[in-house]
């Protein structure tokens, strides 16, 4: 079983989001980068398949050299090899094209990703990769089992879940539930040492066409101060007459 895990390199969830150059660039000053939390669930599930079912795990990132520490972290957690496609991730479609190229060359049975990255929240890369490759695709996955050539998948739906089955190859976009929070792995010293020796291959992009681009950023408008109320009578009155929400 060959698994490809897509890793996005994103600002840590506690980061203050600021922009520079007249709000046209993300300001990475003082920002700590991490493996996208949704991708971490995917990577952890991949490690489970490695341990229990002998899978080999490759991680891939589309990005410039600054993303390499994030890929090394994935290797330290236990991935066998890493691939970095040497171009900036600007447009989800373009990123999906690069990943599908890597996938074509690697002959993967399963491509695991997070359902979105917490920077641009596009939520489009996994579905696009699957469609470009003509693989089966399940989004918002909260459970995945593989037996031979068959995948059984739980998908979150509005107000519940559904159980799906299909044949490999498959692209999965995961979230919490794929593994539990407590199963997430922190790299240990041995993992970090071994990661230094694992292959990290840099490949050049195949495609430079962008279908979308960001021309500027905005921050939410400043909020007016919170009204502190003394009792529930006043609260109900304000919610009804002022906010008009009940």
């Amino acid at each position: 079983m060959k698994i490809l895990v897509c890793i996005s390199h994103v600002p840590d969830t506690t980061s203050k989001i600021n922009f520079s150059e007249n709000n046209t660039k993300f300001d990475s000053n003082g920002v700590q980068y991490v493996i996208n939390p949704y991708d971490e669930f995917a990577l952890t599930r991949a490690m489970w398949f490695k341990e229990k079912q002998g899978a080999t795990v490759t991680v891939v990132n589309i990005g410039n050299a600054t993303t390499e520490p994030t890929l090394r972290k994935a290797l330290a957690i236990g991935a066998d090899e890493a691939i970095r496609v040497n171009t900036e991730a600007i447009d989800g479609f373009a990123v999906a094209k690069e990943i599908s190229e890597v996938a074509k060359n690697g002959g993967f049975d399963i491509i695991l990703a997070g359902k979105e990255s917490i920077d641009y929240n596009g939520g489009m890369v996994p579905g696009m990769v699957a469609t470009l490759l003509n693989y089966n695709f399940v989004n918002a996955c909260i459970g995945l089992e593989i037996e031979g050539n068959k995948a059984t998948i739980s998908r979150e739906i509005d107000g519940g879940k559904e159980l799906l089955s299909c044949n490999l190859p498959i692209v999965i976009a995961g979230q919490k539930g794929l593994v539990e929070e407590k199963d997430l792995k922190i790299p240990n010293m041995r993992g970090i040492m071994m990661a230094r020796k694992k292959p990290l291959t840099v490949v050049e992009p195949v495609n430079n066409e962008l279908k979308t681009s960001t021309n500027s950023f905005e921050k939410p408008a400043a909020k007016s101060a919170c009204k502190i109320v003394d009792n529930v009578d006043e609260l109900v009155n304000l919610l009804h007459n002022e906010a008009k929400v009940i």
Binding site: D119, T214, N215, F217, K219, P220
Partner: peptide
């Protein structure tokens, strides 16, 4: 060009589709 949510609601980006 359309304004969309980004950075998990901490900001917006104006995205041009070409």
């Amino acid at each position: 060009t359309v304004k969309r949510k980004a950075f998990s609601n901490k900001a917006f980006n104006n995205c041009t589709i070409s």
